[in-house]
Design a protein around this nucleic acid. Structure first.
Lengths: 215, 215, 215, 215
DNA sequence: AATGAATGAGATTTCATTCAT
DNA sequence: GATGAATGAAATCTCATTCAT
């Protein structure tokens, strides 16, 4: 708790060689994190795996946390990219298909390399909201909000910001929980279908909400 | 990686005195975790705060993790109690009100002592699914499943187990994310309302799912 | 270093039951010392083996060292008894046979229960010269000195006290070293013969000492 | 009992700096052992005296025992050197003078720094026969055996190996016992003389052994 | 006296991190 | 910049020993 900004990378590598070193270290970190878990992944082990001295590692990453943070950031950036592609402004004719497609893409993304994701996601709450990640999430939130604003009409006014906040958290968390607890569900069409149902049901006109079990 | 079961309590206190010691230690741990955070909470500090020797602490808890694990377990047990009370078999006339009430109670519960919860929940993924917690969650899942089976009728057959799994994760994770990211939302009626809408929308007859945005 | 007289037994048991407890504890200690070594022999283990609470053990022995000291003392006392029997005043016609016999008896004694002896003898230098043991050794020294004074005549005057000191140490240490390093030698007639030769050669009239290798 | 090889040094220092650190630690250990005794010598105190962190100490010595073991080993190595110098192949005209000289040199060696030696020798049996020490002793035994084989002629055949074993143990142990029990004797010519007599008497032609007390 | 929980000093371990070369 | 020895704070462990019941 005594050092500020433990998660920020120390400096931006200028030379090609330095960039390559950073990549090597990150790859080594990913590997060691997967094979040894967060606790077991010592910085020494990462440095060795990367074929770099411990001193050099600290040249580029001020702390172990910064290493994980960087991996997390890249991971989120890729997630953002995937979402951005889907959310990019375009004429929407069938919101339902749109949502379904988004969920499918998302689940597909998180189904990759689940062991690394598990370790990263476990550390995420500890590392705290990274500057970069927050910006990314904010962008996703606003993208989603824009799409919804243009495609939804509620009978009663709703706090769209809150709606989006809840959708994102519910979706993200349900996916993460599944990565951690039931990775075998990831990628089944059924799972995608149910998650879509969750979102779509939530987005339906409020008027229906009073009679959920009546025909 | 060399120690097994770091999170399991070391031994069961037999005498009254020992039980009291364990309680004192747990209370002290909660206090120190809140005031110093997880990293800052040293076992020495916990022992001192408890007015107990470090030896006694390690007599009952083999690691700092075990301390947090026990607090987590108790926390989840209380959550289960709250849910069980609401889910106890009883005639249900209005599922919507039922769900709303459940969500309200849940949010209320998680709104208590948010600083401790935040620390505990941040550590939860690291500590891994505790035996005890898993049993508790399984019980909640089955309780929810029973209630839904008796009160829902879908036009199309749905995998109720998956539905419940998703509901629980989405709800739990949304609440936890809010505890960690936007504690100020906890306890607002609006938040409860939206979470309820999320669940209720999901539970609505499937037939509606095809036309979410049409009147 | 803070407690005085750690090796003295705490008190003299008055009642029969107490005496029996002391014996039980000593037997347990001997057993555990043999099976676990000095470090591995915890007082708790000894108490458990004796079927006694740790508190009761400390009722009779103020420290672990006192336990070992008591075993050592008894061991030495038995050794003394053996030697005393041999050294008891009696007409001596053949000193050579006398020495040989003494050595034989001594080696025989130390050949018993070598595993316990090894542990005890390893601790002996740490525990330091016990009051009781010193008295015993002093008695042996004086017994030996008396016998020698009556049966030896040196051409040149010798410091008989030093001679006895050296004989005792050389003999004792050679036997102990053999117990520890080559237990298989213990009890071979050859070993007894050579030790006897060591002593006898030392005791021979000094005049001979100038020409050890000339015919 | 759970850790293997407690007395073996942890790793070999590679750089000059590291070697210097090891030396500093050993010197500090010797100093603290003398001033505080074995029990009183805490690893923390040794590290502090050496002006080195506790981590560095444990980097090179896995335990307090390993520290003592290393000091013992060096001590024995120096003793070996002293003996080797005396035992080095050379024409021997007067075995008696040779033995006397050897004993003198040995006693002289053990008379140095008796306080440290006392502590080391007290711990020696606990630490057990170190690999290195055993090799050293074996070398001494073989050196002695060679010298004796070339300079002795017995009327009756003797097991020279056993003779040497006994000589070494008797001599060593008598000297050690004196260091511990009567350090004031060390260095007196009388003590050297009597020890020499012990050895020389033992080495005398066996024919004499039958009549030790007859004129 | 008996019991065993509690004590507490010290040993040991472990790394993330720093720093001299 | 690179290297790896050194640092040092905590965690962890281990018992001999004490003490309240």
């Amino acid at each position: 708790m005594s050092k500020r900004n433990r998660s920020a990378p120390r400096k931006r590598p200028r030379q090609e060689r330095a960039k390559a070193t950073v990549e090597t270290i990150l790859e080594a970190a990913a590997h060691v994190l997967v094979s040894s878990g967060y606790e077991g992944a010592t910085t020494k082990a990462v440095a060795e795996r990367a074929g770099v001295s411990i001193g050099s590692l600290y040249q580029y990453f001020p702390s172990k946390e910064a290493l994980v943070a960087m991996l997390l950031e890249r991971f989120h950036q890729r997630a953002l990219q995937v979402l951005s592609d889907k959310l990019a402004p375009h004429p929407i004719t069938d919101l339902e298909q749109e949502v379904r497609e988004l969920v499918r893409v998302l689940v597909e993304f998180y189904a990759e390399n689940p062991r690394l994701q598990r370790v990263l996601l476990e550390q995420a709450p500890r590392i705290g909201p990274l500057q970069a990640v927050q910006q990314i999430e904010a962008r996703v939130e606003s993208l989603v909000q824009i799409v919804l604003a243009q495609n939804l009409e509620f009978e009663h006014p709703r706090n769209l910001g809150l709606v989006v906040f809840i959708i994102i958290r519910a979706l993200r968390s349900a996916v993460w929980a599944t990565v951690v607890e039931r990775p075998e569900l990831m990628g089944t069409p059924e799972f995608v279908e149910e998650l879509s149902a969750l979102i779509l049901g939530y987005l339906r006109p409020q008027g229906d909400r009073r009679r959920p079990s009546t025909p």
